Simulated scan of single mutants.
Amino acid sequence: MTCFIVHACAFDCAPTHGEPNNMTCEPIEIYRDIFVHDRPLMDTRAPIEYSKGSFPLATNLPLMTDDERAQVGTCYKQQGQEAAIALGHQLVHGEIKAARVQAWRQFCEQHPTGYLFCFRGGMRSQITQSWLKESGLDYRYVPGGYKAMRRFLIDDFERQMQQNSLVVLGGHSGNGKTILLNELANGLDLEGAAHHRGSAFGQFVNAPSTQINFENQLAIDALKINAQGFRSFIVEDEGRNIGASHLPLSLYHKMEQAEIVVIDDPLGVRLGRLCQEYVVQMHQQYQQAFGEEAGWHHYCEYLQQSLFKTRRRLGLERYEQLSLALNQALKTQARTEQVDGHYAWLEPMVRDYYDPMYDYQLNQKKDRIIFQGNYADVKAYFTHQADAA
């Protein structure tokens, strides 16, 4: 029922709202439509499979729980396919089956243009679709399932790295590189895909992406840019790793050879952006996620632990000074809600830690710099380039 997957031969769901019909479209056309147009997806794989990686708009509504899947898998290995199928139906029947079908129906009714999928578009998809039909609802499933969609994304991304050009956007911390990337139609936000900003202070409130989710999101973002007619991408200057995620080698090697455009804003402007991003916004996000009291605790812990990660490069004495300044700024913020006190540790952190480190890195590739200016100048440069293309 789960551990043995057979390929589906017929795709008999009726199309809705003019979307591709499983019976008439090539699978690759279906995959492209799903990702370019953000079709909702119902992932019927077990939670443990989903947790390792899925797609941005996928909701996990499994046919079987992890425990049920494990039991069926053991049965399949020991007694064969027929016994495993029988056990699967024994485990998922009656009220359990009814509850799962009801959850599937709710999803399908809320998302009539979506699809369901399992690992290979085999038995789990067919059973889910069959039970939905028994309840009076037709719904499409993805031919080839998760495996085929993932392969499509990997292959398409590699193709784009071979065929399309790339420009790297550089600049010191606080120059607004990520902000600008998201204002440009062909900006590819690597940090957004990784769900991490790539520095000691780079974690988000929620967990970073798994490697699979990072690669899937990155490929989907590139696919959407390409679908708009762009044949070039703009990416932020990054190392091989962003948090726990590592860049696909095809992208990283292309970045190593790409031309570079550098944003160069004054330190005061940069500090204002950093304070807004790492202090004001992170405080707000932690409170939204955990509530006022617990959110404050998590926010303070985030700043203190992030600073702690830099202690070796800073040196113990410098770290102690900045730690005292940070704790004082937090006390002031808690008492008055004012955040200006954070500049006392932010400025030396940027000036003495991040700037020298990036200056050294940028100097290694200075021969590839083709334009340099403040935020407005760089935005105008890219806008002109897009208009001239």
Rank of each mutant, 00 (worst) to 15 (best):
Y139P: 07
G229L: 06
F308A: 13
Q333I: 11
V235A: 00
G202D: 03
K365T: 09
E215M: 04
M1I: 10
C75G: 00
A344H: 10
K379Y: 01
C300R: 05
T44C: 14
V235R: 11
S209F: 02
P112E: 02
F201K: 07
Q106C: 06
E292L: 12
K379R: 05
Q203S: 12
D387A: 15
A219E: 07
V168I: 15
Y31S: 05
F117D: 01
C300D: 00
Y302Q: 07
H384L: 13
T24V: 13
Q321T: 10
G94P: 10
Q102I: 00
V262H: 09
D377H: 03
Y360T: 11
R313W: 01
R151G: 00
T336C: 10
L181C: 09
V6L: 11
I48W: 01
D189V: 05
A46H: 05
A103P: 01
Y354M: 04
H172Q: 04
D265E: 11
R69V: 08
E293Y: 05
E191V: 01
G198L: 01
G291L: 07
F233I: 06
T310N: 05
Q126F: 05
V168T: 14
D355N: 02
R312G: 13
D43G: 12
A86G: 01
Q162K: 07
A380R: 04
D387S: 10
F35G: 01
Q90L: 03
L223T: 00
A244T: 12
R311D: 12
M255Y: 03
L132A: 08
W345D: 03
A294H: 11
Y360W: 14
Y252M: 07
A193I: 04
M255H: 04
Y286F: 14
R45A: 06
R351Y: 01
L184A: 03
